[in-house]
Design a protein around this nucleic acid. Structure first.
Lengths: 334, 334
DNA sequence: CTGAAAGCGCTTACAG
DNA sequence: CTGAAAGCGCTTACAG
């Protein structure tokens, strides 16, 4: 069942069927209605591949994320997809599991699918695959890839002020010794956060002790191990900031296991403000990053660029954070 | 840059380029290598829309879920997508937010995109939109839609034995009064679970008290409200099963708020066995359903059917559950 | 407002 | 092993 069949059934040309289908104003309303009635009757479904081939626009956006199991991403995906559907755009979704090779592969597949734009919302760094996008000229937006900001659109989280708030909060509570659970060095977002932690400590004129920094994997397990490492020191820090909430969850469990009461003996701050923060006991103080805001700005950059006639310069949008204080932070007890 | 340009650059016909591109054995290896070298040099990317139009297969699967923010679904999506990529298939992902109208719309869009198969992993019931799929003949698999099992492939969770295990566990601990936090009547999965709860209670020869059943919304908030309602009764049940983990989280918070100790005064069981179960204090006993298993069977049904020459009969695969006991269940204290 | 026809970029049966 | 050419199902500039 194709447009020729419909044309025959309706007694018109395929051009007229096409116009009726696309709501062109160059069809007599009565003709359009007649055609549409027939289309509905026989359940005709137009072939999008043919349309895309002809028109050159696919009305498809690609969305690549690192890790759909980290609750950070589903909220971002949710919003991004909602915005797309509002514009009649479908989303091909894929995830890399933090693997740069998978990211390059994903990028290539999306370009082959003729997607109109690509949001690369991943934490890992990878330049491979970008050339394919560049050659084809598909609009693209990256997340926190500031070193690529001159050439590619970016949505970036203001980590500096985020960690600044967290450190200031702890300092105000009376903490001087602040430890840090870092993310893996392979992720650009982890590196950004570590850098921001150092900057925040310096701004607060607090010393960073090397043995108070432990490296985790951005997951619960790594947070548990890293926190355990710090708590076993002879002089553990009285406060710890985790580079993300998942590691903070592990840190909380480690403190429980070692009978270190929170916040009495240990103040803990996470990053991301996942829903889980309120589910924990004690509830977790965290630095909030709006996933909706990331999605909105990423989508709008792409939508604007994919609708524009001419290529525009790379944009950068910075997302502000907000500290949400809960039960896991308090005054240190001597 | 299209296949004609490549043919010209390589000094061969488009047919040869196409063959080289697709690894046909009808090209001299040397010719193929020559063509591929040129393709790599100029960063040629084939146009998938043209290919799909010509071949009729899109190598695209559609995946519809209800609610990506419920951690149940990301794990399912993760696995499904991994299986697809393994087969060179991309996934168009979309979610309905439990809205049947959105589901119908999503189904239609997927069919227009020529997807080779569709996994409808939603909880809501909706028959609208299915006719479009039926007319086109796109393979499809549903989740827990047993009333449609004769006509459509289904992956179904064995709720009956799942709740059976949970009730038996509570009974063995010495509980006689068991309450239930039901899901919303608008969701087929909620209805299945409620029915299964009743069946399990009957099998265990325990009475179901009407006032011990409260209805929630499958979210934390609804679980909180429903649990509060039960705890405020003059004779609250000593054990409660929540229709899903999200509601159990709310129930836990409600018990905390009302200073009802778990499991001393209240045993609590959730359903789904989300990662959150181990993050809670106390950790939550829950009925585990393997998301991977659902994804694997859904994908394989679709893959088989989309590769098959002829339409086959609707399949049904049942997923077994497993009770994971944790700290939230214990002997009742008089 | 309507139609005839070209053409988007591929693949493949056919001929050699 | 290679090429010429038809055709997948649409849209749209052009002519009327």
């Amino acid at each position: 069942m194709n447009i020729i069949d419909i044309a025959r059934l309706a007694g018109v040309s395929t051009a007229t069927v096409s116009r009726a289908l696309n709501g062109s104003d160059k069809v007599r309303p009565k003709t359009a209605a007649h055609v549409k009635r027939i289309i509905a009757k026989v359940h005709y479904v137009p072939n999008t591949s043919a349309r895309v081939l002809r028109v050159g626009k696919s009305m498809l956006f690609g969305l690549i994320v690192s890790d759909i199991k980290n609750p950070f991403f589903p909220e971002l995906i949710d919003k991004f997809e909602a915005l797309a559907v509002q514009q009649g755009i479908d989303v091909i979704f894929t995830h890399t599991n933090y693997d740069p090779a998978r990211q390059a592969h994903a990028l290539r597949r999306l370009v082959e699918r003729n997607v109109d734009a690509i949001a690369v919302m991943t934490s890992e760094i990878s330049l491979k695959g970008l050339e394919a996008v560049k050659v084809v000229g598909t609009p693209m937006v990256l997340l926190n890839q500031l070193e690529l900001a001159p050439n590619f659109n970016n949505v970036a989280v203001d980590y500096i002020s985020g960690f600044g708030e967290a450190v200031a909060h702890l300092k105000e509570l009376g903490h001087r010794g602040i430890g840090y659970l870092a993310g893996p060095a392979s992720l650009s977002s982890a590196l950004c956060r570590t850098k921001a932690f150092h900057a925040a400590m310096q701004a607060a004129r607090l010393p960073v002790k090397k043995q108070w920094i432990a490296v985790g994997d951005f997951h619960i397990e790594g947070g548990y191990a890293a926190m355990t490492q710090l708590l076993r020191l002879n002089n553990p820090p009285g406060a710890v900031i985790a580079a993300n909430d998942m590691m903070a969850v592990g840190a909380l469990q480690a403190a429980n296991a070692l009978k270190v009461p929170i916040p009495k003996r240990l103040s803990l701050i996470g990053f991301d403000n996942l829903n889980a923060c309120t589910m924990l006991t004690p509830s977790l103080t965290s630095i909030a990053v709006s996933r909706d805001e990331i999605a909105v700005h990423a989508f709008e950059m792409l939508f604007r660029e994919s609708s524009a006639k001419r290529k525009s310069k790379a944009q950068l949008h910075t997302i502000q954070t907000r500290l949400i204080t809960r039960q896991s932070t308090g005054r240190p007890v001597k």
